[in-house]
């Protein structure tokens, strides 16, 4: 990437970080906001955080790899979260994962080469009554069947 566009791309990160006082307790919140903005934590943005909060890079890296809400690699345009909470698990969430694997050719934690889909398994989303549950970019899908998975993906493709 040419230097200019990195600078441009970082303006949002700068804005986000600038909102927070230089206290360690806002570190996680700042990282989460950057994650929301970019769908991951770009290294250049981490450098800005490091500077703003005066915290060593090793600490930031430790946090970024500890908390599941943070990611160091870009995620796809559609992030498919398959709930593997207990209720979903005993109602067949593994079948949904297998179906997604079959259709998207990616496993949990991976992103399709075209950057369109990411798949993740997540722990209970608290919607056990409508298990098994899938969430795609904040849209909840309840009582999902393997047959419905293909249909949902088609709809998303169509939205493109």
């Amino acid at each position: 990437m040419p230097a200019g566009s990195i600078q441009e791309g970082l303006s949002q990160a700068k804005e986000i970080i600038g909102k927070y006082p230089r206290e360690q307790r806002f570190l996680l919140a700042a990282l989460q906001d950057i994650q929301k903005e970019y769908n991951y934590l770009p290294r250049e943005a981490l450098a800005l955080v490091q500077e703003h909060f005066a915290v060593p890079l090793s600490r930031l890296y430790s946090m970024a790899t500890f908390y599941k809400a943070l990611a160091l690699k870009p995620k796809g345009k559609f992030v498919i979260k398959v709930c593997d909470g207990t209720a979903c698990h005993i109602r067949g969430s593994t079948l949904l994962v297998e179906e997604l694997q079959r259709l998207l050719k990616i496993g949990p934690g991976e992103t399709t080469p075209d950057g369109k889909f990411s798949m993740e398994t997540v722990n209970c989303l608290g919607s056990c009554a409508i298990a098994p549950v899938m969430v795609i970019n904040d849209q909840y899908y309840g009582r999902v069947t393997t047959a419905a998975v293909g249909k949902i993906l088609e709809d998303l493709e169509a939205k493109e």
């Binding site: 909470g85 209720a87 209970c124 608290g126 919607s127």
Partner: peptide, 11 residues
């Protein structure tokens, strides 16, 4: 920080 899979009362 309700994390128990299968619990959603706090939510």
């Amino acid at each position: 920080d309700e994390g128990d899979p299968g619990a959603f009362m706090d939510r």
